[in-house]
Amino acid sequence: MSSDAYERIRKNPKFNELVARRGRFVWWLTGIIFVVFYGFVMAVAFAPDLVATRPFAGSNLTVGILAGLFQFIVFWFLALLYVRRANGEFDDLNKEIVSAAWGDR
């Protein structure tokens, strides 16, 4: 691929906008997963009593099970959020940028 096209894309302000928007989104999502997952691992290691609490009277559900299920669901939901935005909004912007790079030759 010609380096000219890359150069034109780089100079397009929309490219910087795409990179910044997608980058911010990615770091937020990654940060949430890191904090929640390692926070949970630390809670299991340092506060096992808290994780063993049964929040609902008459139910065997523990905080640990709920937190686990919560992570399976929420992390997958974050993945869904990312794919929807990346395959929709970001890809549309990407197409614009790419066609602009070829268009003004």
């Binding site: 990654t30 997963i33 949970f40 992390f75 974050l78 993945a79 990312y82």
Partner: peptide, 24 residues
């Protein structure tokens, strides 16, 4: 018991990370 469930989360959590940081 539930210890195994915590392992399963560890086995799972790499997937969203791969998606965000590496897939595309």
């Amino acid at each position: 018991g539930v210890d195994a469930y915590i392992y399963m989360i560890a086995f799972f959590v790499g997937w969203p990370m791969i998606l965000f940081l590496m897939a595309e």
